[in-house]
């Protein structure tokens, strides 16, 4: 680009950006001012919100390489700050909504309790059930793989059952398997089974006619073409089911505890802390659940990246 061109380009850019900046800024100031007239606290909250949003706009427009990370982080922090400010400024009761700092305090002071609950609910209940359910579902999909007839029946039925409120089986399974983690694992098995089954069956059907013909020209046996062609081709689908199921597993394990549990577990803690109005503890458990949920999802995503690096959806970065 020559000097004059660059100059023109810059000038036009500055012009347009100064024009487009001025109006929103004036609007924001006016809005915050109006809020302040009603209630100075409201004005303050609005001012912080608008300032943070403005900063985010600037960051977005800047085109700096780190913005993909910085902008959402800033947005998250803004939400936390606004939450904290609102609770403190409007003097909201602990019983209704604790401030983030209160929740953090609950997390730090009751670490051992949270850890015990985590082990009981996530490791014993959710994870064991998740693994059993996934193995069972994939095994079932492979078992019906040779029968077109069963697949045609199983796909719609499985899809239908996957849309049902399966958590509702929790009271029945708690009655069958007792209050321990086994009943929670059972609920999780039932919840994750159908999504994974449906995805695996669909995935195993994924190969196109040409690829199957190729295997035929090699006179490959059923298991050879299964192991070398159809299973790898099905992996993206299987992982889809596995990812959807991570959240279901945690939901199942926690909700099942509402129907009966030993005196440990995240669902149990949420229920009892709620009864005694220790809301900070409830939120602490929610935070743990959130981290556990994202962590589990992250792990599965990582495995997916390793195993299906070749799929177009994973290739972008390579």
């Amino acid at each position: 680009m020559s000097g004059t061109q660059a100059g023109k380009f810059l000038g036009r850019n500055l012009q347009s950006s100064s024009k487009s900046f001025l109006a929103p800024v004036a609007g924001a100031v006016a809005l915050a001012g109006a809020g302040a007239l009603l209630d100075w606290r409201l004005g303050l909250v609005l001012a912080v919100w608008l300032a943070a949003w403005g900063l985010n706009i600037v960051l977005t427009e800047s085109g700096s390489p780190g913005r993909r990370f910085v902008v959402p982080t800033l947005f998250g922090i803004t939400l936390l700050v606004l939450w904290q400010m609102s609770v403190r400024l409007f003097d909201i009761s602990q019983v209704i909504l604790p401030a983030p700092t209160d929740i953090w305090e609950a997390i730090t002071t009751s670490g051992p309790v949270l850890w015990a609950d985590f082990v009981q609910t996530v490791v014993k209940g959710a994870l064991s059930g998740y693994v059993m359910g996934a193995v069972l579902a994939i095994a079932t999909a492979i078992a019906v793989d040779r029968s077109q007839f069963l697949q045609r029946g199983l796909l719609p039925v499985g899809n239908f059952i996957a849309a049902l409120p399966i958590v509702g089986t929790a009271p029945i399974l708690v009655m069958w398997f007792g209050f321990g983690w086994q009943s929670k694992a059972a609920v999780v098995v039932v919840m994750v089974f159908f999504p994974i089954l449906v995805n695996t069956v669909a995935g195993l059907k994924e190969t196109d006619a040409m690829q199957r013909d190729l295997m035929r020209t090699y006179a490959a046996s059923y298991w050879q073409s299964f192991a070398k062609l159809r299973l790898p081709a099905a992996l993206p689908f299987i992982f889809n089911g596995l990812k959807v199921s991570t959240t279901l597993a945690l939901i199942g394990a926690i909700v099942a505890e509402f129907f009966g549990s030993p005196i440990v577990g995240m669902g149990f803690r949420i229920k009892t802390s709620f009864g005694t109005l220790e809301l900070a503890m409830v939120w602490a458990e929610i935070a743990v659940a959130a981290v556990a949920g994202s962590g589990l999802y992250g792990l599965v995503t990582l495995a997916e990246k390793r195993l299906t690096f070749w799929h177009p959806s994973q290739r972008a970065g390579r």
Binding site: M210, Y218, A219, P232, F309
Partner: peptide, 17 residues
């Protein structure tokens, strides 16, 4: 079944994995 021929299709059909 005696693997008497190799077949090349219209598309390469290579396994991406």
């Amino acid at each position: 079944r005696n693997r008497a021929y190799g077949y090349v299709f219209q598309a390469a059909g290579l396994y991406p994995w």
